[in-house]
Computed example of a mutant assay.
Amino acid sequence: MKSSRTVSHLRRLGTTCLVLAIASALAHLAGLLVVIGTNVLPFWTISGILLIAYLTLLVVAYLAARGSTVPPVARSVLVFRTISISALCLLCLSGAFNDFGASYRVLDPPAANGCRAVVREVSFLFAGSGEVYSAWPFGIASRTGSWTADDGYKPVAHGSYTLNWHGNEGVLHLVGDHDPVWPALQTVRCGLV
């Protein structure tokens, strides 16, 4: 009886991890980031961590259920798990590939309401690009703009930018010395829409 209760708890905890991993994957697809202090964490990494936790709990529950009278998992649940795990694995792999070589930075100063500007920059061959996010003090950042740069230039990494706040709206000016940046002015909106 104790074994069946343990297996039941492990399955519930595993299902919770799977549901949270799916929610994190949806947040990643929506273009959101988690910002903790000056650290930035893309949601695909959170989804991957939760997926690993789910798979670990699944193995432990399977091992605990061997030789006991615990009812098997329904076929529809197995189909849902298989589809979810496959989709999450693809999303995590594509997120890792997309973030290969990307750098994230939380910019100073913050706005008066505590909102921060977060930048993601990528450089590949002769092309550079970036995205700017507005990060609320509670840690969720949403994308507010993007740019491209010539010759793989990363203006924020090179310190070639200014950030000025006017109330809840910031203006990020990206300076491209010999490598132009398009568009050079980015708006960081932190007010409620």
Score class of each variant (00 low, 15 high):
residue 149 A to I: 05
residue 128 G to I: 04
residue 5 R to N: 13
residue 35 V to E: 03
residue 86 S to G: 00
residue 193 V to M: 10
residue 35 V to D: 00
residue 70 V to R: 09
residue 104 Y to W: 01
residue 132 V to A: 02
residue 48 G to I: 01
residue 53 A to D: 14
residue 7 V to F: 00
residue 151 D to R: 15
residue 124 F to G: 12
residue 75 R to V: 13
residue 31 G to R: 11
residue 100 F to Q: 14
residue 128 G to T: 05
residue 170 G to T: 05
residue 140 I to C: 04
residue 85 I to C: 05
residue 73 V to Q: 09
residue 133 Y to G: 01
residue 46 I to G: 09
residue 126 F to L: 15
residue 73 V to K: 07
residue 156 V to Q: 02
residue 123 S to M: 01
residue 100 F to C: 10
residue 17 C to R: 07
residue 126 F to W: 15
residue 2 K to I: 10
residue 182 W to G: 05
residue 27 A to Q: 13
residue 44 W to G: 04
residue 19 V to A: 15
residue 147 W to E: 04
residue 124 F to P: 00
residue 173 H to Y: 08
residue 64 A to E: 11
residue 23 A to V: 10
residue 154 K to E: 12
residue 93 L to F: 01
residue 96 A to Q: 03
residue 8 S to F: 10
residue 28 H to W: 12
residue 17 C to Q: 09
residue 142 S to Q: 09
residue 97 F to S: 08
residue 122 V to D: 07
residue 192 L to I: 14
residue 4 S to H: 10
residue 54 Y to N: 07
residue 1 M to F: 06
residue 113 N to A: 13
residue 133 Y to V: 02
residue 157 A to N: 01
residue 127 A to S: 10
residue 153 Y to I: 03
residue 30 A to Q: 13
residue 31 G to P: 09
residue 183 P to T: 12
residue 56 T to K: 06
residue 69 T to I: 01
residue 68 S to C: 06
residue 157 A to F: 04
residue 162 T to P: 01
residue 89 C to N: 06
residue 41 L to D: 02
residue 157 A to I: 03
residue 78 L to M: 02
residue 173 H to K: 08
residue 144 T to C: 12
residue 187 T to S: 05
residue 188 V to K: 04
residue 32 L to A: 10
residue 185 L to V: 12
residue 148 T to A: 08
residue 63 L to H: 06
residue 5 R to S: 13
residue 72 P to W: 02
residue 163 L to M: 04
residue 36 I to S: 14
residue 34 V to Y: 09
residue 2 K to T: 12
residue 29 L to S: 12
residue 88 L to E: 02
residue 82 T to G: 10
residue 13 L to S: 15
residue 83 I to A: 10
residue 158 H to K: 05
residue 82 T to D: 00
residue 47 S to W: 08
residue 51 L to Y: 11
residue 136 W to P: 02
residue 99 D to M: 03
residue 189 R to D: 09
residue 28 H to D: 15
residue 106 V to E: 00
residue 29 L to N: 12
residue 25 A to T: 01
residue 19 V to K: 12
residue 53 A to M: 11
residue 62 Y to T: 13
residue 171 V to I: 08
residue 64 A to M: 12
residue 131 E to D: 11
residue 116 R to H: 03
residue 113 N to T: 15
residue 38 T to E: 09
residue 64 A to Q: 14
residue 111 A to C: 07
residue 8 S to K: 12
residue 174 L to Y: 01
residue 193 V to G: 06
residue 150 D to M: 14
residue 16 T to D: 14
residue 134 S to G: 05
residue 142 S to D: 07
residue 83 I to M: 07
residue 192 L to V: 15
residue 6 T to A: 07
residue 25 A to D: 09
residue 39 N to Q: 14
residue 67 G to V: 09
residue 13 L to W: 04
residue 161 Y to R: 05
residue 90 L to D: 01
residue 86 S to P: 02
residue 20 L to Q: 11
residue 43 F to W: 09
residue 27 A to S: 14
residue 156 V to N: 02
residue 104 Y to M: 04
residue 100 F to S: 14
residue 45 T to S: 08
residue 175 V to A: 00
residue 147 W to G: 03
residue 85 I to S: 00
residue 162 T to V: 00
residue 36 I to G: 03
residue 146 S to H: 11
residue 166 H to W: 04
residue 24 S to N: 14
residue 65 A to K: 05
residue 108 D to S: 15
residue 188 V to N: 01
residue 58 L to K: 14
residue 145 G to Y: 03
residue 39 N to C: 10
residue 14 G to Q: 00
residue 21 A to M: 04
residue 26 L to M: 11
